[in-house]
């Protein structure tokens, strides 16, 4: 479980965290898609990534796929990107 503050005093908890730092193949976006596929509606998946392209790739995919981008934050020398499965 991973927790951090989002906005002012709001806490978002990831139901599943995937450390995809250093992953070139299948890569952070594919890890996100894979995890969202098996998640329950309402659950939040967090992918840790060291790939700067993920900051645009994952939000772009989430929008296209109709899933909710919860947050993108810098953490542990990379980015933590959280997506909630909404359908």
């Amino acid at each position: 479980m991973s927790e951090f503050l989002r906005g002012v005093g709001r806490m978002v908890t990831a139901d599943r965290v995937i450390d995809a730092r250093g992953s070139f193949c299948p890569g952070p976006l594919m890890e996100m898609i894979r995890a969202i596929k098996t998640a329950e509606v309402g659950q939040v998946v967090e992918v840790l990534t060291s790939d700067s392209g993920s900051r645009t790739d994952i939000p772009k995919w989430a929008e296209k796929a109709g899933q909710e981008l919860v947050e993108v934050v810098s953490r542990d020398g990379g980015d933590a990107i959280l997506v909630r499965k909404v359908k």
């Binding site: 193949c25 890569g27 976006l29 594919m30 790739d57 995919w61 296209k64």
Partner: peptide, 10 residues
């Protein structure tokens, strides 16, 4: 292909 380009590796 599932993502925005032809392969996951740029």
């Amino acid at each position: 292909y599932p993502v925005a380009r032809a392969h996951t590796i740029p």
